[in-house]
Structure formats: C-alpha cells, structure tokens
Design a protein around this nucleic acid. Sequence first.
DNA 1: CACAAGTCAAGAGCGGTGCTCACTTAAGTT
DNA 2: AACTTAAGTGAGCACCGCTCTTGACTTGTG
Lengths: 249, 249
Amino acid sequence: MTQTPRERARAQTMAEILSIGRAQLAEHGAAGLSMRAVARELGVVSSAVYRYVASRDELLTLLLVDGYNALGDTVDQAVDSVPSDDFSAQWRALGRAVREWGLAEPARYGLLFGAPVPGYEAPAAQTTEPGTRVVLRLVRLIEDAYKAGVLDDQMPGQTPGQTPGRRPGQAPAQAPAANFAAVREELALEVPDAVLARGILVWTALFGAVNFEVFGQYGAATFADPAALFELHLDSLAHILGLRHPGTR
Amino acid sequence: MTQTPRERARAQTMAEILSIGRAQLAEHGAAGLSMRAVARELGVVSSAVYRYVASRDELLTLLLVDGYNALGDTVDQAVDSVPSDDFSAQWRALGRAVREWGLAEPARYGLLFGAPVPGYEAPAAQTTEPGTRVVLRLVRLIEDAYKAGVLDDQMPGQTPGQTPGRRPGQAPAQAPAANFAAVREELALEVPDAVLARGILVWTALFGAVNFEVFGQYGAATFADPAALFELHLDSLAHILGLRHPGTR
DNA sequence: CACAAGTCAAGAGCGGTGCTCACTTAAGTT
DNA sequence: AACTTAAGTGAGCACCGCTCTTGACTTGTG
C-alpha cells in the first residue's frame, strides 16, 4: 500500500497543522485555539485549513486524542522501564510520569483533565480508548500485583469483618456501591471489590495532586518543594494500595 | 451611612451584572464570557458595562471570588450543621458539600479548580483569602480533632519507627519534604508533620474525586452510582485521616 | 438660584474570531 | 495531451474585547 504523492503531501500538511495546533494550545489555551492563527502559521489563507480539518471542534478532537496518546505513551514507557516484578516501583514510575508530563505540558494536560471546553463535546468513539489508557495501566498494575500475591488484600489497619469508621448495624457502603462487578468483568479482573475501590481512590488522588500542582492551586509560595510533597503522596498512596517495596516484610 | 439613590442604583446594576456573568459563565465557560453579551442581557449598549467593571478580567476576578465565597459559605454551613465534636461527620459534610456544589455549579467549579483561563492571572490580593477557605476549614477540622485527641496520630497500619514502602537506609521523605513547619507556624497549628501531610493528601484526593465527576472524566456509563462511590471514598479518606466515628473503638 | 464640575450612557470604530462559498490554479492521473 | 480534482484564494457574514469621543444628566457650591 504505497501512497500517492498527493496523499504524502496531505499527510504532511495534516501533521503540520497538528503541530501548529499544539503550539497554539500551549500559548493561548483550548478556547484560544484559532483556525485563522493556524492558517497564518501555515502560510495559507484561513479557509484553506478547512480542506484538512472540518471544523475547530474536529481540530480540538484531534489534539485531544493526540494528548491522551502522548501521555499514555509516556506512562507506558516509564512503567515499562522498571522491573516487571517491582510493582511499587511501577506505581511510582506511573505517578511520576503523569506529574512530569503534566508539568511539562500544562496546556495539553489542562485540555485533558481540566474543565471541559464549553460548547465542545468530545466524541466518545474516538476519545474513550486513548482517554482510558492511564487508568487501564494502573488497574493492570494492581491486578498483576494482586495475582503475584504481593498485594495486601485489606485496607491497612482494617481488621476483617469490621468496616472502620462505620457504626455497627449501618449498612456497609462497599457492597451496593458503584457496580464494580461490571467493571471487573469488562476488564477481566480478578481483584476483589475492596482492592478495586482502593485503586480508583488512588487514581483520583493521583490526578487530584497533579491537578493542583499543574493548575497552580497550591499557591506557589506555600510549599517550598512540591516534588518532595508529591513523593510523599506517592508513598502514602502506595501504602493505601497495599504495595510494598520488594524485600520489605 | 445611608446610601444615595445613585449608589443604590449602581449597587443593584452591579449585582445584576454579576448575576448575568454567572449565567454567561455557566453557558459559555470562562473563555466565552462576553462583555457585549452581558450588556445585551442588561439591556444596555456594550460600552456602558465598562462604567461598572473596568475590564473583562476584572469581571472574571469578581466572579472568581464570588464563586470561592459561594463554595466557602456552602461548606461552612454544611460543617457547622453537624455536632462540633463529631469530626468524622464534619469531614463527610465538608466533602459532600464540595461535591454537591461542584455538581450543581459545574461552570463555576471549573472556573475555580479547572485549568487556568489562558491570559488571565488571578490577582492574589483579592483571590487568595476566599480561595483558601475550604482548605483552611479542613485543616482546622483536623487540628480540632487532633487537639480533642480523637485522631490517630499515625498512619493506619504503620508501626512506629518504620516508614512502610521504603527500604531501610533510604532517607525518609517525611523530614525534608515541603516545609510543613512554615505552614504550621503560619496557621498556628499543633498537629505534627505526618498528620499535616495526610491532611494535604486527603485534600487533594477529595478534589481529585470531585474533579473527575464534575468534569465528566468518569465516563458516565462506567460507574452506575457515582454518589455511592464518593461515599466510599469519603470513608477511605476518613480512615486515612485517622478519623473514626465517635463511639467506635 | 445658576452654573461649573463631575458622572455616566451611548455610539462609532479597530482589529480580531469561526465559517461559507464561488472561484482560480496547479498538480496527479489516465 | 487531456482531463479530473485537490488545493488555495478572497470576499463576506456575524460575532468578539476594547478605546475614544460625544452628549445628557446630576450634584455641589458661589
């Protein structure tokens, strides 16, 4: 399947548009992404861009999946560069990769995890698969650790048969909660509900921390060393997951 | 200090502009906030609005502190409506208040905690005080619980003298991390570093969870009952904080 | 009580935006 | 060499934030 010169030229122009779009995004944000500016940068009249991208929304979608995949690739690479039996290190690599990518690409990160662009609805068909790569990787990590038997299947400090922080007689929230069963089946998981729940909590906590830092919610001056604070969080979250360094215990 | 009819009229117009701004924000997002649209809605020519608000940015700032205060009031009210000695319930009330406010006002929530509006720098002088109300309330809650002696001053499952998930000989991240000392002094706190660190983790986790839900990152269909999932998270986070229901244990 | 000083609404205009459409040009295909 | 078709053009519509100027109105004071 060799491509004609026309297809070659088209593909290259397309790539150039995406590249310009990324730059525009970094400079002016998602709402400030301008077709005219892209055209200007491309050295072409504004309407010419519409030969390649149907609308501003479509360009946004392309940049969205591009961003998801860039983050996904970064995370995959980071996790893969760690011994496959050291799940604690894998978790830390994943967390650090997310944080560092977010800090390096705040505009793209904001597009992926910030407030949705008003008036724009991400088309699920093209978006969900790349958009779930990081969670999926985390869940697989947990699943692998569970199967390897190195995961405490119990909330630390939680004794079996007693859900802490809950009066006896009160129904435990665990059971009826979000239907983990569906998720577990969809992903062909073996981990029990409790572990899955912890995984989701850790997932949200990770992105909460990165959000605060990337979006500047920490207030700059407050914490002298955000990287160290993040490492602290990674430790705590690993502990919550039940992950331990190999060799410990 | 009675106000002249002029002042009365001006104050009312000002309030109306803010109200319209909120509506515009909800409909078109922060970047789509339009002075002309506000003027149109106000039944006035576009430039007239500049008699009341110096610029689009100033209107944004007004809406920002307005939002922070609305959330702060909601949280304060929710926490205050709970027995002052039931810290676990106070925590849950705080968390639920944040979530419910965010879901009820996604656009405003997005303005406060989403990606920063490109090209807009929130003026710290007017913004930091209202912007820190929720964290401050959480920290006070933890401080109070600590002083009342109902807070485990230890990570659950963590035995003293041993930092879990960390090889012996490796320096503990706790000590040099973000300079908690400065924070503790600034807020006149008594809680030890470890508790403060957990507080920050729980804070980020709370907003991470709410972000995901408000910004639609959960993917709708995935979790049948997000409210139940959130309750689960509240439970887990309370446990991490070391909060227990009174009467338990 | 009149009039200067001050306040504020209004309009025109500048340079920007997304997008459409009729059109020409130039390149690839047959 | 002839033909098809993709690529690029430029005018145009309706919108945007913001500035500058004009003119009407209110108020305080000599």
